[in-house]
Write a protein that binds this DNA or RNA. Structure first.
Lengths: 161, 161
DNA sequence: TATTGTTATACTCTATAACTATA
DNA sequence: TATAGTTATAGAGTATAACAATA
């Protein structure tokens, strides 16, 4: 750094402003990977937010709009629209809770349970496509580093966009 | 994989669908890092697309809307709107090329040259904030892995969203 | 009064396609 | 005809705030 500054008369390399940031490379790769995934999902008429919601509902006992909103870091209003779309596609059902009739209980339809494995396979194959460029040990390193960052900063919300 | 299936009787752990994907962790961390950066830029009334455009213009000799569109992976129409906003903020100027009057030459204003270092400092400090959770060697590893993925898949567009 | 879910509204971002003016 | 840039229009996605029903 010091020597570079001296060599170039104190001026920065003019085109190095963006690429020096780790955040730049993270965003570059993440956008490509997620973008390809979103396009593959889109071919099945499913958005990433819808896919995440379906997954949440399949892995948690009692899903409600409010719980989904908290888990996905979206407002209840936004979740309501996502659920409207899923309901129109006959992938979820809403039923009023018998315990508290303000609460809507969300459940996957049989159609959704048949559809979900195919969507998971899209995610699997998208992962394989991009990360097979790394050796297995490198993939493990990458995951370890990312998980460490997530833990260090308390990242808990499921990323949707 | 095989042994896991046998051990669990062929059933998958029901809540492992999302977190097993490297793409999931990549998106989780990237969204947090980029989101924090976008919010910090927003406090200076600048969007990420605007910041990228300013950087491109500061590091390339002859910037034009078409070149920016290609570099940033956006349509010319979308770039035109970004440039409108930058012009309204007096950060760029558009002048007609003397060689080809269809072409608009883009340049930074003096105000932009005074503003840009502050924005770069936001990017620097955002990087420091998030990645200081990793040791220097780990940060280097992460960058190396990400760059490898970018190269392996020919990722060249500057990520904007 | 507080909470759940929905709806009304608005805003940001971007794409598509039509358009103007040059070449 | 082809190209550079702009503009008109539309769509996706999400937030804010007002609302109805229930606790």
């Amino acid at each position: 750094m010091e020597s570079l500054s001296k060599r170039t008369g104190g001026a920065r390399p003019p085109d190095a402003t963006l690429e020096v940031h780790l955040g730049y490379w993270l965003r570059l790769v993440s956008n490509e990977v997620s973008g390809a995934f979103a396009r593959a999902l889109h071919a099945r008429q499913v958005s990433v937010a819808e896919w995440v919601a379906l997954n949440q509902m399949s892995s948690s006992e009692a899903a409600t709009p409010a719980k989904l909103a908290a888990a996905m870091g979206m407002t209840r209003g936004a979740i309501s629209k996502v659920l409207d779309k899923l309901e129109r596609k006959r992938l979820i059902a809403r039923t009023t809770s018998p315990r508290d009739s303000r609460v809507q209980l969300l459940s996957l339809t049989a159609h959704a349970r048949r559809t979900l494995p195919g969507l998971t396979e899209i995610a699997d194959s998208n992962d394989r496509h991009f990360f097979s460029a790394l050796a297995p040990g490198e993939q493990a390193s990458l995951q370890r580093l990312l998980r460490r960052l997530a833990e260090a900063h308390g990242m808990t919300r499921i990323p949707v966009d």
